[in-house]
């Protein structure tokens, strides 16, 4: 009996070890390793258009609280740099908001939507929180990974696609969903669209359309639904709603 319990426990421990024990929340480690395309020596600057945008962003905050602009500026830098933040971009943001670089690194490592390693031009984020998971988000992710031939957070050889994981994005009523962050047109043409009610077949179609340069219509992918309304039209609240009796002021 004891031996069986022990071997069962051992099996469990092995199972835990065989998986990556900590699920990564973001695309990178919490520390930087120099590489040819990502090191502090590489020059990085906001483009002229984005400099104006940065100025506009800074104007939202009091001049002695420039550091408040760190998140919008990092977002802008990420859009400009094709969806990810090299260490020199973070340094550039630190310079703009006049703080030491580590304060920017802290923010960039905290938020999983800041990518610190290269992503594809189309970064596909699969929601994996409970409602989507119950509605089959794991199948959707594996369909995407299988179709593109990559692992999670890996970029396809042509640099077009990468697949990441995301926590709840608030579309639970249309679960499962994926998000497509489109960095193919720089910060001007940047879009961040939800594709809801997807199926493993539908996501592959979406990927193929994106590859051809098309922009598939975002929102729900179920033709029988209008936005987040019920399939096949409304089933309730068909007439004009009556006010609650207690609020009928004339009756008082």
């Amino acid at each position: 009996m004891l031996a069986r319990l022990a071997s069962g426990r051992l099996h469990e421990i092995r199972r835990i070890f065989s998986q990556p024990s900590v699920r990564s929340f973001s695309t990178a480690l919490n520390y930087h390793i120099d590489s040819p395309d990502n090191n502090p020596e590489l020059p990085w600057e906001f483009s002229d258009a984005n400099k104006e945008k940065a100025k506009e962003i800074l104007s939202h905050y009091p001049s002695n609280y420039k550091q408040s602009a760190v998140i919008p500026l990092l977002d802008l830098a990420q859009q400009q740099h094709g969806g990810w933040l090299p260490v020199s971009a973070m340094n550039a943001v630190a310079k703009v908001i006049e703080v030491s670089p580590i304060r920017v690194y802290e923010v960039a490592t905290f938020y999983s939507m800041f990518n610190r390693t290269k992503v594809g031009k189309y970064h596909l984020l699969v929601c994996s929180t409970t409602p989507c998971m119950i509605r089959g988000s794991r199948d959707i992710e594996s369909a995407l990974l299988k179709h593109l031939g990559v692992k999670r957070n890996e970029v396809t050889k042509d640099g077009l696609f990468s697949v990441g994981e995301m926590e709840c994005m608030g579309s639970c009523v249309n679960a499962p969903m994926i998000t497509v962050a489109d960095y193919s047109n720089g910060s001007e043409g940047y879009t961040y669209n939800y594709y809801e009610d997807v199926t493993p077949e539908r996501v592959v179609e979406i990927v193929e359309k994106l590859r051809k340069g098309e922009k598939p219509p975002h929102g729900t992918q179920n033709p029988k639904r209008i936005m987040c309304g019920p399939e096949g039209g409304n089933t309730t609240l068909l007439g004009e709603p009556k006010p609650p009796p207690c609020r009928d002021l004339d009756a008082c």
């Binding site: 929340f25 520390y31 304060r103 490592t109 938020y111």
Partner: peptide, 10 residues
């Protein structure tokens, strides 16, 4: 200002 808190959660 060299040290900081990096990452989140566990």
């Amino acid at each position: 200002q060299d040290l900081g808190m990096l990452g989140r959660g566990s």
